[in-house]
Design a binder for these strands. Structure first.
Length: 156
DNA sequence: CCCTGATTCGC
DNA sequence: GCGAATCAGG
């Protein structure tokens, strides 16, 4: 493969002329025989734009990654910690001394529902939650069972 | 959904 | 420098 430079002088000339003529980037790209992104990229490097640049520069990819992934990462860490001392889940119900009503729920009460909604004895676990989680340790392990998602997905 | 131009960043 | 991936906006 010969290494033909993409942006030869005449191609750049074509690019500029087509741009002046008001062709869209896609049309310019088709005319020259390159991708639309190539045209857009080259125009950007030539400082050629049609409208005023956007006021707010995009946050860096790193920043976007951070804000997008930080919460899932954190929760993954928490779950890791919950499963750190992994024993088989007990078959017996997880009991709580602190059962509470819907209105007594808070960030400091396990939100695991117990019983049938609407029933007289319906309530919530109410125990102290794992930090950053909506459930206590036992119910966190019940709620996030490894592999359960896949099994459920296949069932549908 | 389709499209557009603009920006970032790994190559 | 290049352009794919990704973005915001229409």
């Amino acid at each position: 493969m010969l290494n033909v430079p993409t942006w030869t002088t005449d191609r750049v000339e074509l690019l500029k002329n087509h741009f002046e003529a008001g062709l869209t980037c896609r049309e310019i790209a088709a005319s020259i025989g390159v991708s639309r992104n190539a045209v857009i990229g080259k125009l950007a490097r030539l400082q050629l734009t049609r409208g005023p640049a956007r006021a707010e520069p995009r946050p860096t990819k790193a920043a976007r990654e951070r804000s997008r992934k930080s919460i899932p990462r954190l929760q993954y860490k928490i779950l890791q910690a919950v499963y750190e001392n992994a024993e088989p889940l007990p078959e017996v119900a997880i009991t709580s001394e602190r059962r509470c009503s819907l209105f007594e729920l808070s960030n400091q009460r396990c939100r695991w529902p117990i019983g049938t909604p609407g029933a007289e004895d319906f309530c919530f676990c109410g125990d102290t939650p794992v930090e950053g989680m909506p459930y206590c340790t036992g119910h966190t392990r019940l709620a996030y069972r490894p592999g359960s998602r896949q099994r459920v997905a296949r069932a549908y």
